[in-house]
Design a protein around this nucleic acid. Structure first.
Ligand SMILES: [Mn+2]
Ligand SMILES: [Mn+2]
Ligand SMILES: [Mn+2]
Ligand SMILES: [Mn+2]
Lengths: 223, 223
DNA sequence: ACAATAATTTAGGTTCACCTAAATTATATT
DNA sequence: AATATAATTTAGGTGAACCTAAATTATTGT
């Protein structure tokens, strides 16, 4: 049993968790892309994680990987660290929301449970991070998320921004600029059948904006 | 050239720096003890650090290791991180001074220069950490330290506590209890020729305390 | 159904930072 | 000066986490 979860293993579990959120098993290639590791190396690690005691992933060759219960707990632990850290960096150290992701990606593996508890308390046990992403609870349960991609809305529909993808600083700066941040309301003025572009009125903004799929697939809203 | 300084290398450099502070070169065995690594492994690493471009240490077999200028800068970088982090943990997150060392030992390798700059600013560019240890400046210069071991004082001498060794939580809790913390004044009431014990009156404390060498060699004072 | 393409796995490396055991040097004691 | 002791180095490992190139297995389009 990997009594100690290395930083590498923690990263694998975190990314498998995120891929699993989209319904299906995490494929070797998808993991390789996201982790920036050769597919062959990913296969090796998946085999190891599946054969460890306790098994952290469920893996059948050519079928991708799923987390076991212990694997999921470990993943949620890392994700909780990451999101609490991002919140802490913004709230306490004045980072902007596009600067926190990479810092949190390093710190998440290193902080103690004590540190985690202290920042959670200092922040008032927040339920969402600066990008609106849900923070797993202290007992490692992920709150349910009803939001859906902005890209799935059509003309005249209205919704509230809930969360945005956090890994692209340039996207985050753009979103901030056009006012697309959590809890802001917006209305779809037009949907273009041709390219999927959405023309959107954002609450508090003078002019409408047109957003392509690269953006609307990374913003999640509630109706 | 180790363009990237691994966590291991950073630890070696930090400990070589500290051993060098006591005047002479850092011996293989002393490093092995402090790093909890077999002497044979330390030899290997010292050879590697001496042969890297640029060389980080000066090393001649059987003579121990000294830092080169680049090695010293790298060491001071890590030490600055460590001490700023300790200060931050105490000031901002309410850690007590015996809890911060191990947390800082992990974080010191991972924070960005941006993080370093932000906490330094938030803390008002402190010159000492919670244990009174001097913090290297942002341009990596170590301020000079005039303090000497409490153990070197004799009967009737008076002094001010400047810093205490930070790596033993039990010692730190004891020192706090008897009021031996930075900037506190004390007077030597008796020196025992036999075992080196000192009987000490600590400013603000009702009764005298007797301290052995294990303690008095880890407390540093100014006259 | 079958070839072309894509995804995945196997095989055989590498690097890093360790280890133990044995051999070699240095230093200290008589 | 010789010997005992301590410090240091050499030699020959290991395990983790990667890599590339080649081989295998799945999937897709016609
Ligand atoms: Mn993030
Ligand atoms: Mn945790
Ligand atoms: Mn720094
Ligand atoms: Mn300290």
């Amino acid at each position: 049993m990997p009594e100690i979860l290395t930083q590498s293993i923690q990263d694998y579990l975190k990314h498998i968790y995120k891929l699993n959120e989209n319904g299906d098993a995490a494929s070797t290639n998808d993991l390789a892309t996201r982790l920036n590791i050769a597919p062959a190396s990913v296969t090796g690690m998946l085999q190891k994680l599946a054969n460890s005691k306790p098994a952290l992933v469920l893996y059948k060759k050519h079928q991708g990987a799923t987390l076991t219960k212990p694997g999921e707990k470990a993943a949620l632990e890392v994700i909780r660290h990451h999101r609490l850290l991002e919140t802490f960096l913004v709230t306490t150290l004045g980072y902007s929301w596009d600067e926190v992701h990479s810092e949190a990606d390093k710190l998440e593996h290193v902080i103690s449970e004590d540190f985690e508890a202290r920042i959670a308390k200092a922040l008032g046990n927040p339920s969402r991070d600066p990008h609106g992403e849900l923070i797993p609870t202290a007992d490692l349960v992920m709150p349910s998320d009803e939001s859906r991609p902005l890209a799935s809305l059509r003309t005249d529909e209205a919704a509230t921004v809930k969360r945005v993808s956090d890994d692209d600083p340039a996207l985050l700066r753009h979103l901030r600029e056009i006012g697309v941040v959590p809890e802001v309301k917006l209305t779809i003025k037009n949907y273009s059948e041709f390219d999927g572009n959405l023309t959107i009125k954002v609450e508090g903004q003078k002019s409408n904006v047109v957003l392509g799929k690269e953006v609307t697939s990374k913003v999640f809203v509630d109706k």
